[in-house]
Amino acid sequence: MSKWKMSWLAIPFVLIIWSAVSAQYPSYLFPGPIDVLNEAVSQWQKGELTNHIIVSLKRLIIGFVLSAIMAFIVGIFAGASRHFREFLTPLVTYFQATPPMAWAPLLIILLGLGDAPMIAVIIIASFFPILINVIQGMNHIPASHIRAAQSLGAKSWKLAIYVYLPEIIPAAISGIYVGFAISWRSLVAAEMIGGNSGIGYFIAFNGQIGNASSVLLGILLIGFLALFMDYLLLKPLHKRFASWAVRS
């Protein structure tokens, strides 16, 4: 059986288990698939959930793009300069060991409610995984490639664009995968703690009022949106820029 067909078998398997378990409880405590589907239709008609999804995706895209740009710039400098890399090492170790969500309360105090603290959490969550992979990619660039470019007159920014950037893309894509997963989870958690909109806020609010169907709907959306973005963005990105490195 093909991998594609095997993947689709997971969906009915989960639905069967979910239906069997939910049948043991009242629907207001643990709703079944039909209850959640009805809630999804109701929320779609209201349009409120759609707005929360758009807000979360907007925050994710802005924060992740800013984080990736900064990680690429800092990573290239760190890979090119041993002294700068040594300076960064303890900072990277410290921030890597600190959960991104630990910063959320402070960021909310400093920046208030809204998009700013959520985007900051995303940047903190995704910056270091991407940075580490960019530095590793820089460390694996053959010295012969750099010398060849320098012999042709490439210096500073030309080295960065024509040598460093193409060489580090495969490693950076791996960091982007890891950073995306961490930042998506961190964003939802931050919205649950101090957001006034977004999927995390939607789940937390409905949990407070005891709407289990909406809570389950929000949880399912977190996973489905992650799968959607993986197939729509991350996999094509890997195929376009990094698949050649795997083949080689």
Rank of each mutant, 00 (worst) to 15 (best):
P12Q: 08
V14D: 05
I16D: 04
I16F: 13
I16H: 06
I16P: 12
W18Y: 08
S19D: 07
S19K: 03
S19E: 04
V21D: 01
V21K: 07
S22C: 06
Y25E: 00
Y25K: 02
S27Q: 04
F30P: 01
P31G: 12
P33V: 12
D35G: 11
D35I: 05
V36T: 10
V36G: 02
L37K: 02
L37P: 11
L37I: 14
L37T: 14
N38I: 02
A40I: 11
V41W: 11
S42H: 12
Q43S: 14
W44C: 05
Q45C: 05
G47Y: 12
G47Q: 08
G47S: 09
E48H: 05
E48I: 10
L49G: 06
T50Q: 10
N51I: 08
H52P: 15
I53W: 11
I54C: 13
I54A: 15
V55T: 13
S56H: 04
L57V: 15
L57M: 15
K58F: 15
R59Y: 13
L60R: 02
I61P: 01
I61D: 03
I62V: 14
I62Y: 14
G63S: 03
G63W: 13
G63E: 05
F64V: 01
V65S: 09
L66G: 06
L66A: 09
L66W: 09
S67F: 15
A68C: 13
A71F: 14
F72S: 08
F72E: 05
F72W: 10
V74T: 11
G75P: 15
G75W: 09
G75S: 07
I76R: 00
I76D: 01
F77Q: 02
F77R: 01
F77I: 12
A78P: 15
G79R: 10
G79K: 07
R82Y: 10
H83K: 08
F87G: 06
F87I: 12
L88E: 12
L88M: 14
T89K: 14
T89P: 02
P90R: 02
L91K: 00
V92K: 04
V92Y: 12
T93P: 00
Y94L: 09
Q96G: 15
A97Y: 03
P99S: 03
P99L: 11
P100M: 15
M101F: 10
A104H: 07
P105D: 01
L106W: 03
L107Q: 05
L107I: 03
I108T: 10
I109E: 00
L111I: 05
L111F: 15
L113V: 09
D115K: 07
A116I: 01
M118H: 10
I119R: 01
A120F: 06
A120P: 09
V121T: 10
I122L: 06
I123K: 03
I123T: 05
I124L: 07
S126H: 09
S126G: 04
S126R: 12
